[in-house]
Write a protein that binds this DNA or RNA. Structure first.
Lengths: 231, 231
DNA sequence: AGATTTATCTCGGGT
DNA sequence: ACCCGAGGTAAATCT
């Protein structure tokens, strides 16, 4: 990622044509080549930008442009469409480059993780006498979301999804098959917990003796006060 | 504007709750207090953000957080709603602040101007024998987009819009009324040219003897080579 | 992969 | 002030 603070003007020609007069702005060049032009205020979205895939070419200004005070031209072209972003740089006030690495962050599995955390804290939602053994219980083929014990002390594997689909049931089935080979755990029963369970998934689960549990996210959040005392 | 490259995790609690695991990201603090969290790829929009008006408070981590490697906590609170963004900073790799000044903002009317320029160059789209008199022909109540003459030498006033609406027809009607009082110009006929003309506008125009002309922006751009030699 | 729906939508214009 | 619709919509989800 490259950060450049520069006095520049910007022209965009594509689905519409737009122009940004000369001013000091942040130019943000991401590692995929995309470019964002940000001002110091108003809104999370850039004044102008180019989405990947695109190519950035830094060019020398021609005589006219140099006379007008331009020291460098950035030409950002979309790979597929004819969209073109041209940044005329008059002065560079700051420039730095940084290696950020890949970002693991997706808020999607954040929600699923949150659901997992909430159900771990409210394990009684599985039924009376249930107790949590551990979250992310590791097996040879991957972590089971929750491992618990029922009132009789039997092992229970819980797979948590935001939307329960057939492949979620298949996944849990593989875990159960493996875990039931372990004499320390067996017999292990399964619970398929999700905010929404598709009819096909429910049918498949019932056919395999897996219990389905609908989760009420809002109610679970309401029970949990950690949202209100977040740090 | 403050730029911070930091290893951090992010929690957002508001209309939804989301979590970003520990990774290196760009934290962008604008002068209005708003905060943007950007990763190095994918999308022009931040992974997470807080819109103004909001307040940013930098806090010391508590004992547990310090043990987990947190060196600073940013707490960004929305002024009106209960939205809260918490950034747990583990390491700061870069930090700089910059004074950008006010941004004059985006000129979006560029499309209409571009359309005017293209139609002026391709005035034959109005019909055979048409010739351009001038762009932005000045009248007492404002400039008419194009003034032309038809094959018979009669005056033609052209109003250009991106989306042709009723008020565009009204505007042209006022121009025509005024110009037809000028013995040097009269009689003046009207052409309402737009990429898209609303049915109501078309009906009104026809009722007033104004001709409607649909403009094919892409075709007109294709005819014009100045797009290809933009800089 | 293409179509459809959502969004902490944003942003403007009109009433 | 609220309502409505477009967006260089972008991005997630469904088929």
């Amino acid at each position: 990622m490259r950060l450049v603070i520069a006095r520049c003007s910007v022209d965009y020609a594509g689905r519409l044509s737009a122009h940004l007069p000369l001013a000091t702005r942040l130019l943000l060049v991401k590692s995929d080549g995309s470019v964002l032009v940000h001002s110091d205020s108003l809104s999370y979205k850039p004044l102008n930008w180019m989405s990947p895939p695109c190519t950035l070419a830094a060019m020398e200004p021609d005589a006219d442009q140099a006379d007008a005070g331009v020291i460098q031209i950035w030409r950002v072209a979309q790979a597929k469409t004819a969209d073109l972003l041209v940044i005329s740089i008059h002065e560079i006030l700051h420039e730095s480059a940084h290696e950020l690495g890949h970002d693991p962050g997706l808020q999607k599995d954040g929600a699923e993780h949150h659901l997992q955390k909430l159900l771990a804290e409210q394990i009684e939602l599985l039924g009376d006498g249930y107790r949590l053994v551990r979250r992310e219980y590791m097996t040879a083929i991957g972590p089971v979301d929750l491992l618990a014990t029922d009132a009789a002390g039997g092992s229970v594997a819980v797979e948590i999804k935001r939307r329960g689909d057939i492949d979620g049931v298949e996944q849990l089935t593989r875990y159960l098959e493996l875990m039931n080979r372990d004499p320390h755990l067996a017999p292990v029963t399964g619970v398929f917990a999700a905010q929404e369970i598709k009819p096909q998934a429910r049918t498949l689960a019932q056919d395999r003796g897996i219990r389905c549990l609908l989760l009420d996210y809002d109610a679970m959040r309401g029970m949990d006060d950690s949202d209100h005392r977040l740090f």
